[in-house]
Design a protein around this nucleic acid. Structure first.
Length: 598
RNA sequence: GGGGUCGUAGCUCAAUUGGUUAGAGCACCGGACUGUCGAUCCGGAGGUUGCGGGUUCGAGCCCCGUCGACCUCGCCA
């Protein structure tokens, strides 16, 4: 007989009745009846009920066991009869009557219950992650993550992509997020950087002629955490393709994402390819965001023209000064108590906006101060242009365009949630396309790249030379699912002259490009194929599929909000010897903490 | 760096207007029980109410400070 087990804890069925078996696992739950005990024995695969009665030599040992001790059980498989069957357990038709039990590893009193489903403080969970990971939901999430990654690989390979590993120790890049730096021992005073993404490497792979690359790529950014953003590190399904247009990229990745979501969505519907294409401009108008949740049926409408010169003085005068008015319909909300509208207005003010105007329609009659001052003709025009129903509500955001769009977008989400309009059993994908190449930085009063400086501007060199930079669009696209940005990507700029020109517009000298992007700009001189790609976030895909709002629920050993690993004690101080080898000494104003056991 | 929420037993939570010895469930220890499956029943141990200061006859509760966790803004080309 095997040293530890003949079967796992999810394996035995009615077919095994009468067999002598050996199981090993954790003591999940114990039910002690004095002369008879039940143990739910758990391993990775499942749970099997073990019965020990007083005549067994094992009885005394079993009575002294703490929960989560690891034991080995030898016993005989018996059928359960009648109401002894547990229909909630795959092994619920049988039980193992213990003959001998060996304690393989005792457990101390637990800082974190394994069997309970309650929520526990992050700090305790992270400090005892190995225990937290035994709990059913988290255990399942991590297995799901593995399965999703395996499926992504399989589907990418089936699409003709090849996986390559790119360097982890690389050069710092001047733009974008903060780099994690790694000091060089051989070159004192110089640093490697961990890649924020394998951006340049994958483009060089295209120049090298590999045609279709992908990688489940670790990426590192030294930025602050959010609920959906790990501090430090995360994974992307990074891919790049040669000789492609934007539509070719979409056609390659849509079946992969659709397929993976269908495979793991457990019955939720998934947008079939081709996913809707929405321009950035349209998205900002209709959804007030560049990552719209299309499960929410509300669409924002510009109604500036209805309020211009109208009787509602606050809006009319704001419009004269360049403001716009965006209307957010609230289907069926007209019959709601006035407090619904007032509370929504109060929420907008609490978010730092001027507030939200509203009209509540009851039986086709518009109520509230806005309707009264605007007058029946213009209200009728509003109803007809927006297609409002007789008992709808409508909110108004009036401000400078960028602020009005943002407020309208947030109000759209809030109203959708309040009115319970957001479908819960759907994954709704879309592409946001035609992002602007440049934008105006109010703070620095200059033109900056709005997304990726390596994107190809639409119209190429001619556009850069003749158009207002702020009007130039890029072959730059995001993929969005249920309001979550899964990735951004682009058709890249593979022509050095256009790249110099684009950087020039953003205020960078030719020499800066030569210095900071030498690897890429140099490579592009020797025959670079037109290419493009994208990089959907793996963590966020798993979050969506696991229906978890917090990214730490889909990561094995996540860091806390302050980018610390409480279990391993990272980051930690290092020994003076290590520092000396690296040629590093601390400035006097940042005294190092005493060495920890790092 | 700014804003918000929170901090009571190993864990989840309670404690009236500021008022007796800070309670309950799970876990742990002891006892009863041969069919439970979140077993049940009886008992026990377990607390510097995050920490420091203040107000008060009296503070878990009020005030000030501080530390920590999470959420969020900035940031994430």
């Amino acid at each position: 007989m095997h040293t530890y087990r003949t079967h796992n804890c999810n394996q035995l069925t009615i077919a095994n009745v009468g067999e002598t078996v050996r199981l090993s696992g954790w003591v999940f739950r114990v039910r002690d009846h004095g002369k008879l005990m039940f143990i739910d024995l758990r391993d990775h695969y499942g749970v099997t009920q073990v019965v020990v009665d007083k005549d067994s030599e094992a009885f005394q040992l079993v009575q002294s066991l703490n929960l989560e001790s690891v034991i080995r059980v030898d016993g005989k498989v018996l059928a359960r009869s009648g109401d002894q069957v547990n229909p909630n357990l795959p092994t619920g038709q049988i039980e193992v009557r213990a003959v001998a039990v060996e304690l393989l590893s005792p457990a101390a009193e637990l800082p974190l219950p394994i069997a309970a489903t309650a929520e526990y403080p992050e700090e305790i969970r992270l400090r005892n992650r190995f225990l937290d990971l035994r709990r059913e939901k988290l255990h399942a999430n991590i297995v799901l993550r593995s399965n999703v990654i395996a499926s992504l690989r399989r589907r990418m390979i089936a699409q003709g992509f090849t996986e390559f590993q790119t360097p982890i120790l690389t050069a710092s890049s001047p733009e974008g997020a903060r780099d994690f730096l790694v000091p060089s021992r051989i070159h004192p005073g110089k640093f490697y950087a961990l890649p924020q993404a394998p951006q340049m490497f994958k483009q060089l792979l295209m120049v090298a002629g590999f045609d279709r690359y992908f990688q489940i790529a670790p990426c590192f950014r030294d930025e602050d955490a959010r609920a959906d953003r790990s501090p430090g590190e995360f994974y992307q399904l990074d891919f790049e393709m040669s000789f492609v247009t934007q539509e070719d990229v979409f056609a390659a990745i849509e079946p992969v994402l659709h397929g993976v979501f269908e495979e793991f969505a457990e019955g939720k519907s998934v947008t079939p390819p081709p996913f809707p294409r929405i321009t950035y401009k349209e998205s900002m108008l209709k959804y007030g965001s560049d990552k719209p949740d299309l499960r929410n049926p509300i669409e924002i409408v510009d109604v500036t023209h209805i309020f211009r010169g109208g009787g509602f003085g606050v809006f009319a005068s704001a419009i004269e000064e360049g403001a716009v008015v965006r209307a957010i319909p609230a289907p069926g909300a007209g019959v709601r108590a006035r407090s619904f509208f007032d509370q929504t207005n109060a929420w907008a003010k609490a978010e730092g906006f001027a507030g939200l105007g509203y009209i509540n329609f009851k039986g086709g009659e518009g109520g509230g101060g806005v309707a009264k001052n605007l007058g029946p003709e213009r209200v009728a025009q509003l109803v007809s242009e927006m297609g409002l129903g007789p008992d709808d509500g409508v909110f108004f955001a009036c401000a400078k365009e960028s602020i009005a769009a943002k407020l309208a977008g947030m109000a759209r989400t809030r109203v959708g949630q309040e009115l319970d309009l957001i479908a819960q059993n759907e994954f709704k994908f879309c592409w946001i396309v035609d992002f602007p190449m440049f934008e105006w930085d109010e703070l620095e009063q200059k033109v900056i790249f709005s997304h990726n400086p390596f994107s190809m501007p639409q119209g190429e060199m001619e556009a850069l030379e003749t158009m207002n930079p702020l009007d130039i669009l890029a072959y730059q696209y995001d993929i969005v699912c249920n309001g979550i940005e899964l990735s951004s990507g682009a058709i890249r700029n593979h022509k050095p002259e256009i790249m110099y020109k684009a950087f020039e517009i953003a205020g960078y000298d030719r020499s800066v490009v030569d210095e900071k992007f030498s690897g890429m700009i140099n490579a592009f001189q020797y025959g670079a194929p037109p290419h493009g790609g994208s990089a959907p976030g793996v963590d966020r895909i798993v979050m969506l599929l696991a229906d978890e709002p917090n990214i730490r629920e889909v990561i094995l050993f996540p860091m806390n909000q302050k980018a610390e690993d409480l279990m391993m004690g990272a980051p930690s101080t290092v020994t003076p010897k290590q520092l000396k080898e690296l040629g590093i000494r601390f400035a006097t104003d940042t005294k190092p903490a005493p060495p920890t056991n790092g």
